[in-house]
Amino acid sequence: MFKLLPDSPSERITVHVDGQAVSVPPGFTAAAAMLLHGTGSTRTTPVTGEPRAPYCMMGVCFECLLQIDGEPNQQGCLVTVAEGMRIERQLGKRKVDE
């Protein structure tokens, strides 16, 4: 869906998108990592299971909810990536660990 502009700095860190190791520039948000490396939807709604993906990228729409390092329903556009971060799609209602 998205690509890096030419003249971007070459520094990279590794994160895992749905289990796949990918490289992104430091300072990226988790949602931006999904735009660069994910395809199509990044979550399905807890209401009807519709596919959705990042929409506003500024923290107001809650469309970029992701599971980040095992923590469900995180606003991906507000979480800065860290080396080794596990980013997964949020599918429907979150599960709870009893």
Binding site: M1, F2, K3, L4, L5, D7, S8, P25, G27, F28, T29, A32, L35, L36, G40, S41, T42, E50, P51, R52, A53, P54, Y55, C56, M57, M58, E63
Partner: peptide
């Protein structure tokens, strides 16, 4: 407007400014 691939212009500008991302395709 809720389909993946639909974003706001602000989002387009945000990823351009903050991450150097531009739409592919």
């Amino acid at each position: 407007w809720t389909l993946p691939g639909v974003l706001t212009c602000g989002a387009g500008q945000t990823v351009l400014k903050a991450h150097g991302l531009a739409p592919k395709g």
